[in-house]
Computed example of a mutant assay.
Amino acid sequence: MVVTAVGTTVTAIEERSNKRSTGGFVDEMRAVAMKMHTKDQSKEGEKETEGTPWPKWEPTIDGYLKFLVDSKHVYDTIDKILDHADFPEYAEFRNTGLERAGNLTKDLAWFKEEGHFIPELLSPGIDYSLYIEELSKKDPQAFICHIYNIYFGHTAGGQMIGRKVSAKILNGKELEFYKWDGDLPQLLQNVRDKLNKVAQDWTRDEKNHCLEENEKCFKFNIEIMRLIVA
Rank of each mutant, 00 (worst) to 15 (best):
residue 59 P to D: 06
residue 119 P to Y: 03
residue 145 C to S: 15
residue 151 Y to S: 05
residue 125 G to S: 10
residue 69 V to A: 08
residue 155 T to W: 01
residue 75 Y to G: 02
residue 114 E to M: 14
residue 92 E to W: 10
residue 136 S to N: 07
residue 60 T to F: 03
residue 117 F to T: 15
residue 115 G to E: 08
residue 100 R to S: 05
residue 118 I to E: 02
residue 151 Y to M: 11
residue 133 E to D: 12
residue 173 K to M: 09
residue 156 A to R: 07
residue 138 K to G: 10
residue 79 D to H: 13
residue 159 Q to H: 09
residue 144 I to D: 00
residue 135 L to Y: 08
residue 102 G to H: 13
residue 178 Y to V: 07
residue 87 F to E: 01
residue 60 T to D: 01
residue 76 D to Q: 14
residue 140 P to V: 12
residue 138 K to V: 13
residue 126 I to A: 01
residue 74 V to M: 09
residue 127 D to V: 12
residue 73 H to R: 09
residue 87 F to V: 08
residue 67 F to W: 11
residue 164 K to W: 00
residue 83 D to N: 15
residue 161 I to P: 02
residue 169 I to A: 03
residue 126 I to Q: 11
residue 67 F to S: 03
residue 97 G to A: 11
residue 175 L to R: 08
residue 153 G to S: 09
residue 120 E to S: 14
residue 103 N to Q: 14
residue 109 A to C: 04
residue 70 D to F: 03
residue 135 L to T: 13
residue 75 Y to F: 15
residue 149 N to K: 13
residue 150 I to P: 02
residue 105 T to D: 09
residue 73 H to K: 12
residue 120 E to Q: 14
residue 105 T to Y: 05
residue 75 Y to R: 03
residue 103 N to R: 14
residue 153 G to W: 04
residue 146 H to S: 05
residue 166 S to L: 00
residue 94 R to H: 00
residue 163 R to V: 04
residue 64 Y to M: 02
residue 146 H to I: 09
residue 142 A to R: 15
residue 100 R to D: 02
residue 131 Y to S: 07
residue 127 D to W: 01
residue 113 E to W: 01
residue 149 N to F: 08
residue 133 E to T: 15
residue 64 Y to D: 00
residue 129 S to L: 06
residue 113 E to M: 07
residue 151 Y to P: 00
residue 122 L to Q: 14
residue 58 E to W: 01
residue 132 I to S: 06
